[in-house]
Amino acid sequence: MTGNYKYIDHTADIAVEVSAENYEDLFIVSAQAWRDSVVDEHGFDNLQEKVLEFNDNSIEELLVHFLSELNYLLLGSKWITTGVKQIKIIKIEKEWNLRIVILGIPFDTQKYNIKIEIKAVTFHQMDVKYKDGKFLTRIVFDI
């Protein structure tokens, strides 16, 4: 996996800028930015797998859809995503498809702490662009 992210200042919420060499890595790094924002780093073990699949009309909708699902899994299903085992993004005609195998564990709120509740992953300023050999986007989390 290649790529990185950095936090940028935002009046009320959390904003990150993500860059990676391909779409798949852009999604993996974005997931890492989301996770680092909500929980502290832990050595999670006994990992489980979940398969997610989404179809959307744009790469931005696909990214919001994916990150929103991770957020729901934590806050609704109490299950934290710790990493990605497999990922494939394809575009067929006008439709973008994501198939991803994520790793994670049930989130024990007695044992671990949620740092910040992300209400939602927003579309604000999200615009996936290719520049100087890298895919770039900004993601704003509403908190």
């Binding site: 929103s68 939602a120 579309f123």
Partner: peptide, 28 residues
């Protein structure tokens, strides 16, 4: 939060379908 999130995704698609030209996706 989840209801807003769910329906934003639905209405982003609907805005395209109804041919609305909006200056911001968050106005879906």
């Amino acid at each position: 939060y989840q209801i807003c999130d769910d329906y934003l995704k639905v209405l982003v698609k609907a805005s395209d379908q109804y041919g609305f030209k909006l200056p911001d996706r968050q106005l879906a």
